Computed example of a mutant assay.
Amino acid sequence: MEGVIFYWSCWAFWIYLTFILEKQNPYRVKLAAIVLIALILSNFQFKIGEFEVQASGLFILGISYLFLSQEKRGAIIYYFICSFIVSIAYVTFHLFEIFDPIWIIFKKEWMMGIGLWYLAILLQQTLKGRLIIIFAGAMQGEILFAYILNKFQFPYLIGAFSSLDVCSITAMLLVGWSALENAGSILQNHFHFFEKGKQKSS
């Protein structure tokens, strides 16, 4: 069922932000509000010209641009280049799925999620940067793919649940990878603390 991964991941993240994350974190309330609004807007669709758009997809794209606008000018240019690369990869996958679907060896959302996850790791060093280019790139890819299909009179919903599932899978993989990247320093500090305690006791 499309949208299940999106709903589960959003609710899990919202619960973490609301009840588990320390209240002093400056991003806590903002991120919780963003997740909640994205969940609410997922039930609304509207039309822009010839294109059908799901409100949550457009909201995610807008939030990505908002975070982008807070970066320095040079960083913004690089972010846009990275998001454009993600968009091209996103559209290319969909086009290959149409013209040669036999190479889809397992569920396409997971294939796309893993591919975009690897691409984000190559293009960006920070979790924030990776998430921004994935969300912006995927939604830009949705618009570009809808434009291509519209040339052939094929209807397509921009920001549909399948695309939100892809974004959710990629985000979860990136968060997990970031936790693994930082696990070394956390464990090092943890063991260093115990070593200090042993030295003091001796």
Rank of each mutant, 00 (worst) to 15 (best):
Leu116Ile: 08
Gly159Val: 09
Leu61Ser: 02
Tyr147Gly: 01
Ile60Lys: 08
Val166Gln: 09
Ala171Thr: 15
Pro26Ala: 11
Ala138Met: 11
Ile34Gly: 00
Cys82Glu: 03
Trp117Ile: 07
Ile76His: 00
Met111Thr: 05
Ser42Pro: 13
Leu31Trp: 06
Ala32Trp: 12
Lys23Ser: 13
Gly176Gln: 12
Gly62Asn: 01
Lys108Gly: 01
Gln140Glu: 03
Gln124Pro: 01
Met172Asp: 02
Asp165Met: 02
Leu164Met: 14
Phe191Val: 11
Ile76Lys: 01
Phe193Met: 12
Trp103Ser: 04
Phe152Leu: 06
Pro155Met: 03
Gly184Gln: 03
Asn25Met: 07
Ala146Asp: 14
Glu109Asn: 12
Thr170Trp: 06
Ile76Trp: 00
Ser201Leu: 10
Leu95Met: 06
Asn150Arg: 15
Val35Thr: 14
Asn182Phe: 13
Lys107Cys: 00
Met1Gly: 01
Ile15Pro: 10
Trp8Tyr: 06
Ala33Gly: 10
Phe59Ala: 12
Asp100Ile: 09
Lys198Trp: 11
Cys10Lys: 01
Ile88Lys: 13
Ser9Trp: 04
Ser185Thr: 15
Gly159Trp: 10
Lys72Trp: 01
Phe154Ile: 11
Val4Leu: 02
Leu41Phe: 06
Met111Asp: 05
Leu68Arg: 05
Phe194His: 15
Ala38Trp: 00
Phe67Asn: 05
Ala32His: 07
Ile98Val: 15
Leu174Lys: 14
Lys198Met: 10
Gly62Trp: 09
Pro155Thr: 08
Leu149Asn: 09
Ser83Leu: 04
Tyr90Phe: 04
Lys23Val: 13
Leu41Trp: 07
Ala32Asp: 12
Val4Thr: 10
Gly184Phe: 03
Phe193His: 10
Ile158Gln: 02
Trp8Gln: 11
Glu181Trp: 14
Val35Gly: 01
Thr92Glu: 09
Glu2Gly: 00
Glu52Pro: 03
Glu195Tyr: 05
Ile20Glu: 02
Glu142Met: 04
Thr170Gln: 07
Phe194Gly: 02
Thr126Ser: 08
Phe80Thr: 09
Ile186Phe: 15
Tyr79Phe: 10
Ile85Gly: 02
Ser168Gly: 10
Lys200Ser: 07
Tyr118Ala: 07
Tyr90Met: 08
Tyr79Asn: 05
Met1Asp: 03
Val53Gly: 05
Arg28Ser: 15
Ser201Val: 08
Cys167His: 00
Ile102Pro: 08
Asn182Val: 13
Phe19Tyr: 11
Ala136Gly: 15
Ala146Pro: 12
Met172Val: 13
Lys128Met: 03
Lys198Tyr: 09
Gly3Arg: 09
Ser9His: 06
Gln124Thr: 13
Ile20Ser: 03
Gln54Cys: 11
Glu2Ala: 04
Ala38Phe: 13
Ile158Ser: 06
Ala32Arg: 15
